[in-house]
Design a protein around this nucleic acid. Sequence first.
DNA 1: ACAATATTTAGACATGCGTCTAATTATCGG
DNA 2: CCGATAATTAGACGCATGTCTAAATATTGT
Lengths: 90, 90
Amino acid sequence: MRDALFRALADPTRRRILELLAERDRTAGEIAEHFPIAFASVSHHLGVLKGAGLVAAEREGQHIRYRLNSTVFQDVVRYLMSKFAGGSDA
Amino acid sequence: MRDALFRALADPTRRRILELLAERDRTAGEIAEHFPIAFASVSHHLGVLKGAGLVAAEREGQHIRYRLNSTVFQDVVRYLMSKFAGGSDA
DNA sequence: ACAATATTTAGACATGCGTCTAATTATCGG
DNA sequence: CCGATAATTAGACGCATGTCTAAATATTGT
């Protein structure tokens, strides 16, 4: 579970997708436009992010709209701070 | 740079190593004892962690002592909070 | 200098992962 | 129902990565 999370964060394209979704919710197509790779590849990345719980998807007519799940990020932050950040600004 | 960081965090063995080092500094041998994999494999992981700046190594006689670099963790936390944590407990 | 201990490096191997194209599913409008 | 658009799924391919064994390097003690 935490494993899927960190593995999902390991890819730069996926992190960029997350940043885009942090600005605002977007459809799969809108996201894909931002990358030079094939549509299907972006779709694959979205699946990985969804599997890790980092994003949620909802169909909206012809489109599928993705949104960030910021709760999971807070979990990651808590994990990192509690284990490693070692007290200074944590 | 951030890439190496997140890639380093993606492996569960490496995260476990970091947790061990969060408790206290340890030599490569002490770390390796905690894992069922070959000594050389642990050494490889230590190299990855070092490459990502997450740990530092210092020779100490026959041994090499590893310690956590908590500054880098704070950077990760800051990145995650600023971009994604979206305000609640962040 | 030599043997023993600690650790890394080299090379090989299997599996995982990101990417692609092609095919499939789903929804909307006429 | 059909054609067009949006998105995912399937299958293939190459490269990255985690693991192993064996060899190399470094340090200590005799």
